[in-house]
Design a protein around this nucleic acid. Structure first.
Lengths: 221, 221
DNA sequence: AATAATATTTAGATAAGTCTAAAAAATAAT
DNA sequence: ATTATTTTTTAGACTTATCTAAATATTATT
């Protein structure tokens, strides 16, 4: 069993190395966790002695197989709790992150598996991120960004790239929540903004390029 | 905000002093928390400096008003989470304590209030222990649950523990409304269900354990 | 009232996780 | 290739919560 601090480092390392197989750097980890580089070095030594990471001084760090598995279990718990908070307790999806940061450290396989069952074994969380199963397995869906959708196409919102509170508040406010069916009606050459129709709300909304590049969608088939 | 260790001491002090207004003793606290007397002394000093307890060297300790309030909030969370685990995730009562010991330290008033609402604002847990409300107020159970009544006894229904709509509909439907005189005719070992006679309606009804644990009764004198 | 037994506190140590400041290594620039 | 800059690590200190062992206070016994 790992401490809370260890779990947070494993999770951070997972997120920092998922798109960077060469490894994570001390300063980046420190920035990500809002701590100091020296603290990171200390923890990397500890995780290394526990065989959770492959670490050599000055050489960056990657998760070991064991470390990756542990990280995925924490991520699984985080995403399932977020789903629970939104689905069962009617939190908005921009409110759940901090609470899930605490709940993800509750130690009980049985508990999280029953939460999983209660929720109907969801594969994706409210942000559209995949939820690993009890063995750490998950499937990434090759979502497109709204930015890449041509005029006339109808798509379903299924996630976001930027999951900051400020962005979530924005899309909540304009009605682009997960599951919403939308249609791209126009693309303005001037600034690449889009006119989007939301049939369920009978509204239309103008969306900037910056927004459209952060909204993930699935093409309706 | 208090640390996990502080919360555990406050809770322990509450339980140790609820029936002993003169105060708790260092060794008793140490035995209760499975720690050493010297550790207790250290923590009592800390809690005292935070005005959470009234403590004088060698003189025992009692909770301050503030400390009692904090303790009750932890107890509230513990009992609500236990109720949740049993009610929504189908854990048995003997399985929930350890998980609730972790969940009780999650810091979010909004979360526990929504859990409270989800459960129908229960006033007592199925052990008959009262659940403090958001202000720390609670009523000691003056009744027994139907579950605890032996064969042959005649009792009056005087309340429920689960006050959710679904449960109220159920007991309304089978006739176990407040004021009803009932007699326990049989207890089936198989699933601890009861056969109840309702003389006023000249009917008999089979009541599951889950139901009997949520019906409060007063023994007829 | 003096001594024995018990309870409590203090002193000093340990472990986890963090920090600052200084040293060392790696990388970039001249 | 040497110097400058950046990055990373080390050394030492701090905090929280714990421990053991010794000291002190309280209570009980004679």
């Amino acid at each position: 069993m790992n401490t809370l601090a260890e779990e947070n480092y494993l999770k951070a390392l997972y997120h920092l190395t998922v798109q960077a197989p060469e490894g994570a750097y001390t300063n980046d980890i420190a920035a990500y966790l809002q701590t100091k580089a020296s603290s990171v070095t200390d923890m990397l030594k500890k995780l290394s002695s526990k065989k959770l990471v492959h670490y050599k001084k000055y050489q960056g760090v990657i998760l070991s197989k064991k470390g990756k598995q542990k990280a995925l279990q924490v991520i699984r718990k985080h995403r399932l709790w977020e789903y629970f908070l939104v689905e069962k307790l009617n939190f908005r999806w921009d409110e759940v992150h901090e609470i899930a940061e605490q709940l993800e450290h509750i130690q009980s396989d049985e508990l999280i598996n029953r939460i999983d069952k209660l929720l109907g074994f969801p594969k994706y969380d409210p942000h559209g991120d995949p939820i690993p199963d009890a063995d750490g397995y998950f499937e990434e869906i090759p979502f497109l960004t709204l930015f890449a959708i041509p005029i006339g196409e109808t798509v379903t919102v299924c996630g976001v790239i930027d999951s900051s509170v400020s962005f979530l508040k924005l899309i909540e406010n304009i009605g682009l929540t997960i599951g919403t069916l939308i249609k791209v009606e126009e693309i303005f050459e001037f600034d690449h903004s889009l006119k989007i129709a939301i049939p369920s709300k009978k509204t239309k909304v103008l969306v900037s390029q910056q927004i459209s590049k952060n909204v993930l969608v699935k093409i309706k088939k």
